[in-house]
Amino acid sequence: MSTRTSVDIREIEAFLYREARLLDELQLAEWLSLFTPDGIYWIPIDETQDIATHAALVYDDAARREERVYHLQHLSFPAQSPASRTMHVVSNVERLAPEAGSSDILVRSVQTIWELRAGDFTQIGLGKIRPLVGTVRHELEQTDDGLRIRRKTVLLIDRDMPQANLTFII
């Protein structure tokens, strides 16, 4: 596994756009392949607290990501009947200095994720577009197969406020 320190910002942006497209088009098996085997998908309530003793909105290792994708793709359940449609808008992409001792490429972006559950739009909860807003930190590793996610952290601006249905992938 080789590491490269000089990754063009365009390559990073292209990677984020691709991830966004895979999520919006529900190409979720391919989305799974974007992570390193030890990768973590994390949506904290309070990112300053120790994950071992504090609950998160999402804290998915590989097995839990696989379960989440299986749930969405192969099972029918009330919270996704009808299913969510999403549109991830990625902007303000910036490469930041990595954490001390880390060789990962640290990228911050601002994302607005528009979500809609279609269906009988006369009913509660259906037919309304709602926005989720936050910064997303990607800790990326350059591998022989290209960039891979070691950690994706979504910091919703309302992460410690009431949350509605978040059973789709952010």
Binding site: I43, A55, A56, L57, V58, E67, R68, H71, F77, P78, A79, S81, G125, Q163, A164, N165, L166, T167
Partner: peptide
């Protein structure tokens, strides 16, 4: 949790 595999179904119901 709101991204969990159970409670969001109750909320939906």
């Amino acid at each position: 949790g709101p991204s969990g595999h159970g409670m969001p179904d109750d909320i939906e119901i």
